[in-house]
Amino acid sequence: MVQKVATAATREVFGKTLLELGRRNRDIVVLGADLNKSTFANLFGKEFPERFFDLGAAEQNMMSMASGFASSGKIPFCTTFAVFGTGRPFDQIRVSIAQQNANVKIVCTHAGITVGEDGASAQSIEDLSLMTSLPTFNVIVPADGPETMQAVQAAAETKGPFYIRLSRSATPVIHNESHHFQLGKAEQLRDGSDATIIACGILVAAALEAADTLRQEGINCRVLNMASLKPLDEDAIEAAARRTGAIVTAEEHYIHGGLGSLVAGVLARTEPTPMEFVALTRYGESGKAEQLLEKYGLTAKHVSTAVRKVIQRKR
């Protein structure tokens, strides 16, 4: 079992990191859309009110305005919930930010079904598909608090548009403070030769738990934390497929267009390999986060089942 000694809400880590970045770099400006308590952007807003712009429930305006800030030398962070920060203003992101290759950082919290009781309209399960479809964007799904801090810092320091996807609920901490996130690099957390689990976000902890369970059955899994969806570490995916011959992807996202689709695309071109997908296949509903993860098939148990299944299909 993974020692769940600590959990942290990635959104809270984000708010604190943003505040720290704001202290170090006066060019950072923060834009919010009337959800600044929930995203923790208000930590920045309290200390730097002149660099903080609440635009109300008007995400389209926020995205294009951020591009204007970026074109004038600022480093704007747009913050809101994933469902309001991707699908709703997608055309503004596409034209004002992506086609402009603007130095805008979109950091969205409350992604996936673990937003919980608010129900399906608030549960963003399409955002990774949307955001990875934009040619100039970098897309990151941190696994926990320490990685969130690293990813937000990397986004601030790296020119170009970023999408960072965070959660509402507290997430098990799997990294220590010395963790070093690298854009475009997979992180190998376990090694094994029977199958590889490639996960992102809150499913990384589930993948580790599954790997530990499976080891007791004599199944040894490689586990890759694929926090960087774009750019994607194609070499690590190909190498894992060659070494283990079976791949399971795990993500809190619709099965179409997210991590699983990206990995399958790489394998189709490089090393066709049996795959199983742990992902959502329909819209969610109201409920507690853990109830929803269980009902919709996104727990360590479901990852283990997928590994056993994919191993049956190995050639």
């Binding site: 400006v29 389209q60 591009s67 204007g68 030398g73 600022k74 503004q92």
Partner: peptide
């Protein structure tokens, strides 16, 4: 925006005023 002198890609209507406000608020900050 790659065209010299063009500030921002446009063509999908409605986005330029927001972009301009970002430029104007940057001027104020600086």
């Amino acid at each position: 925006h790659e065209t010299p002198g063009v500030e921002v890609s446009s063509g999908s209507l409605g986005q330029g005023l927001s972009f301009g406000i970002g430029c104007a608020l940057s001027a104020r900050l600086d």
